[in-house]
């Protein structure tokens, strides 16, 4: 049983899943198609309903 995990996609869901698993102590391999992670959320200015800055 290999205890590494592959996460495909570095948007908000992929990042959160990676962080949870990393914190649990598993080795995560996060693969992202674009030159940087962040996904669609990085293109947003602010998010509802708190109007927090998206980054």
């Amino acid at each position: 049983m290999n205890r590494d995990v592959l996460v495909i996609g570095g948007g908000i869901a992929g990042m959160q899943a990676s962080l949870d698993l990393g914190e649990m102590g598993f080795q995560v391999h996060l693969v992202e198609r674009l030159p940087s992670i962040g996904g669609k959320m990085s293109q947003l200015d602010k998010t509802f309903p708190t109007n927090d800055c998206a980054l």
Binding site: E23, P35, I37
Partner: peptide, 25 residues
């Protein structure tokens, strides 16, 4: 946090080519 995490290996600008094997391996 993701970029700095010691347990996360980030492979950006990459794509999955092939997946073989089964759950657990």
């Amino acid at each position: 946090d993701v970029g700095r995490h010691p347990k996360i290996r980030l492979l950006a600008y990459s794509e999955i080519e092939k997946i073989d094997g089964e759950m657990g391996n």
